[in-house]
């Protein structure tokens, strides 16, 4: 899928650098012992600014799904209809990421199925982003 290339900032550079090394890292708040994504300047719960980046396993489960028929993003319009699924990380299921679930036909997204991260190169800049595929596929 020809995704837009995300432009990293100082805040999320570690996340995108890790993606380019095929590693998935997520912000972690020590006092709350809680992960969060997207990256923020502080913990969304306690306000702690001292967040660290932790590598996670890259395993998760499909939480829900939609089929996009009318995307606002021009680069994806030719791909319609396409799946978008929410992925709950194994380490902390409240941390949600998105996926196009490459290889899974539209309307056939298996909710609850195990998935594993892969890294997809976006065309405009070559920046890699996390994607997900059915585990073992």
């Amino acid at each position: 899928m020809p995704k837009q290339s995300p432009v990293p900032t100082e805040l999320d550079q570690p996340f995108y650098d890790a993606c380019n090394e095929d590693r998935l890292v997520v912000q972690h708040c020590g006092p709350c012992n809680r992960f969060q994504f997207p990256p923020r300047m502080m913990c969304a719960r306690c306000g702690n600014p001292g967040l660290t980046w932790r590598q996670v396993s890259g395993r998760g489960r499909i939480k829900s799904r939609v089929v996009v028929y009318d995307s606002p993003v021009s680069t994806l319009v030719p791909e319609q209809p396409f799946n978008v699924a929410t992925i709950a990380l194994d380490e902390e299921p409240d941390v949600i990421m998105l996926s196009h679930l490459p290889g899974v036909p539209v309307d056939q997204v298996p909710i609850g199925a195990a998935v594993e991260v892969i890294f997809e190169t976006t065309p405009a800049t070559g920046q890699k982003v996390p994607e997900w595929r059915l585990a073992g596929s």
């Binding site: 995300p6 994504f37 996009v68 009318d70 993003v73 791909e79 978008v84 996926s99």
Partner: peptide
Amino acid sequence: PGKYGGIWGMP
């Protein structure tokens, strides 16, 4: 901030 979800093209 839209880049974390926006690139998946969800309306």
